[in-house]
Design a protein around this nucleic acid. Structure first.
Lengths: 204, 204
DNA sequence: ATTGAAATTGAACAATGTTCATAAACATTG
DNA sequence: CAATGTTTATGAACATTGTTCAATTTCAAT
């Protein structure tokens, strides 16, 4: 039996989340089970339920971690370089998003897992976190809108972002037949951004 | 014990699919279990495995049915009206897609279910079916491209479609914070289409 | 009638999330 | 230090799941 003083409640919570993270990396989301986590950290399955109300609750915490990672990437200087044009930054942003989805596929896919999604209990902080993801793109869109068009800009950011995500999603789940080998998903995202921004300029 | 001559193999297959369809409508995807299907049609659980290699196989067949429905909707005269402008038709198409996602949510969500997606065995006919979904939009895009720009048009169709889908997905899974009550997802799709098409015109 | 193939069965298996009485570990008190 | 109370860990137990497969039943052919 694990000593009660081995870890504080908070330490144990982190321990479980981190071990889950590793399991997912090795065995994918399907490989993540309460029993496996418990075994790996030297506790009994029941212990997990002392710290998380359910597996879904744990999934939510894991998603939170993923969102943190994503926000860090989208906020990084590489796609917010003042020396580059906004369009170039946007393309870099899209590129890095797709890169993230590819490299951290299981974590990224979890974000859109049905069960996790329908967890609308304490959706407050979670939704705010998702909302935060739009801000880097919103900033890049500033040059194309007047200061009075804040709402329009917000909408544009969300629409463009949803588009990039849609492209990434269909690509990553193999639902899209890429027309030719040369037209990779990032290229298509580039095309999308060029066209969309060109359209925005046109409408002024 | 159910008589062997009650149904032919093919009849039974259809029976299972239709009963599954009803179960999903009533109890969602989560409510769909081998035992429940069997019980409802008066057979034993094992029988299902005589006709489908696994539950995932059955899911694939169900998705196929959903894709048929979707194609029918996207091909319908309501969004392919020669009297209307292409843009209006596109907006109608996006609108109907989103409507479909809302009304047939469980079926629509199943299309993007991980497990079902990773079934890459007989992905041939399935992928072709998905590919078919793009053709209505491709046709609507004809006026904006020369006959030599067939490939460009294909790409545009996929990009635009992915965008609409992304919008729909984030909206339907509650991942997007709509800026205000007035800006519904269909409105945002309209904005997307207007801007995107405007951008296409610009680039010629 | 007999034989043989084909279809149906349902008990059995392994694995899952989850619960909860029990026991252990610690903190507090007298 | 002993006794008591509280918190935490446990792991067996429960209900479900997909899935398998030897046994049984059904039916056509002989």
């Amino acid at each position: 039996m694990a000593r009660r003083s081995d870890h504080t409640r908070e330490e144990l919570k982190i321990l479980i989340i981190e071990e889950s993270w590793n399991i997912i990396e090795k065995h994918g989301f399907e490989g993540l089970t309460a029993r496996r986590i418990a075994k790996n950290i030297g506790y009994a399955p029941g212990t997990i339920y002392n710290l998380f109300s359910s597996m879904d609750d744990l999934y939510l915490q894991l998603n939170s971690k993923t969102l943190d990672l994503l926000l860090a990437i989208l906020s990084s200087p590489k796609c917010n370089d003042p020396k580059k044009t906004p369009i170039k930054n946007m393309k870099a942003m899209a590129h890095r998003y797709m890169e993230f989805a590819k490299e951290h596929r299981p974590y990224w896919l979890m974000l859109f897992n049905l069960k996790v999604t329908e967890n609308r209990t304490d959706a407050g902080w979670y939704h705010e976190k998702v909302d935060q993801l739009f801000t880097p793109l919103e900033k890049l869109l500033e040059p194309y809108f007047t200061s009075k068009q804040g709402k329009k800009r917000k909408i544009a950011a969300r629409v463009l972002w949803a588009s990039v995500h849609g492209l990434c999603f269909l690509q990553e789940t193999g639902k899209i037949t890429i027309v030719s080998e040369q037209d990779t998903a990032p290229d298509m995202a580039g095309y999308l951004i060029d066209t969309f921004i060109s359209g925005i300029k046109n409408n002024h």
